[in-house]
C-alpha cells in the first residue's frame, strides 16, 4: 500500500506540465497507475428488456356475428354485429409467456332494423388471458386463450354469462406499439337462446399498447 501511495506521489511529482523543457523530454512522464477493484464496482442488474415490461393495451373490437338475438327469435341476421373496446393489462412471465386481465364494453346490434333501439343491447365483459410468444426483434407473434364473465344489460334484467376461447395475433413496436389479433369466444348464457350461428363469437381486434415500465 505504501508503495502504491509512493507511486501516486511520484506520479504527481512527475506529472507533465506545459513548460517547454518538460515537453521536450519524452521520458518525463508519470507512472500509469490503474487497477480494477471489483468491490468498488456496482454489479449490473439484468436489463428488463422490452419483452419483460408491463404493458397496457387499448383496443377496438369488432364481432361478427355475435350472440345477437338473446331471448329473441331471429328473423334476419343482416345487422348481427358488435363493436366496442377494451383495456388490458399484460404481465410478461419469462418474456415468452404472459398473463393478463382485460375489461371491455360491447354494443351489440341484431335484427332487421339497424336504427331500432330495441334491437341492441350493451354488454360488459371482464376476464383473464394467457399468451405464448415467438419474438423476433420488436415483432411478436402470439397464441393464447382467454376466459371471463360477460354481463348483458337486457330489457328483461341483467344477465350474467361466461366466455372462453382462443386468440392469436401479432404485436410490433417498442415502448409504444400496435397489436392486431383475431380470436373467438365460446359464450354460455344461462336461460338464453344461442345465436343462429351457435355460441361461437369470432372477433377481430385492432389496438395499441404502451409499456408501463421502463425497459431498462
Amino acid at each position: 500500500m505504501q508503495a502504491r501511495a509512493l507511486l501516486f506521489l511520484l506520479g504527481v511529482s512527475l506529472a507533465p506540465t506545459t513548460t517547454h523543457a518538460q515537453l521536450a523530454d519524452p521520458w518525463n512522464v508519470a507512472p500509469l497507475v490503474y487497477r480494477v477493484e471489483p468491490e468498488a464496482l456496482t454489479p449490473r442488474r439484468d436489463e428488463r428488456g422490452f419483452h419483460r415490461a408491463l404493458r397496457l393495451h387499448v383496443a377496438a373490437d369488432f364481432h361478427l356475428p355475435v350472440v345477437a338475438n338473446v331471448g329473441r327469435d331471429e328473423n334476419d341476421d343482416q345487422w348481427d354485429l358488435a363493436a366496442g373496446g377494451h383495456l388490458a393489462l399484460e404481465i410478461p412471465i419469462l418474456a415468452v409467456l404472459s398473463v393478463g386481465v382485460s375489461g371491455g364494453y360491447l354494443w351489440w346490434r341484431f335484427g332487421e332494423d339497424f336504427l331500432d333501439d330495441h334491437d341492441s343491447l350493451h354488454a360488459f365483459e371482464g376476464g383473464i388471458f394467457a399468451r405464448a410468444f415467438a419474438i423476433s426483434g420488436s415483432f411478436r407473434a402470439f397464441l393464447g386463450a382467454h376466459a371471463g364473465l360477460v354481463h348483458l344489460a337486457t330489457e328483461g334484467g341483467p344477465t350474467w354469462g361466461t366466455y372462453v376461447g382462443p386468440q392469436a395475433g401479432i404485436q410490433f413496436g417498442s415502448t409504444f406499439g400496435m397489436e392486431i389479433a383475431v380470436g373467438a369466444s365460446y359464450r354460455r348464457l344461462p336461460d338464453r337462446a344461442p345465436t343462429p350461428h351457435g355460441t361461437l363469437d369470432p372477433y377481430f381486434t385492432y389496438g395499441f399498447y404502451f409499456l408501463l415500465e421502463r425497459p431498462r
Binding site: 439484468d46 418474456a95 415468452v96 415467438a134
Partner: peptide, 20 residues
C-alpha cells in the same frame, strides 16, 4: 406451433444479461 409453444426471442439487446 413449436416456436409459439416453446417461445423464442431473437434480436433483443440486453448486454448485461448476455454477458452474465
Amino acid at each position: 406451433a413449436a416456436a409459439l409453444l416453446v417461445g423464442c426471442i431473437r434480436g433483443e439487446h440486453r448486454p448485461a444479461h448476455d454477458v452474465r
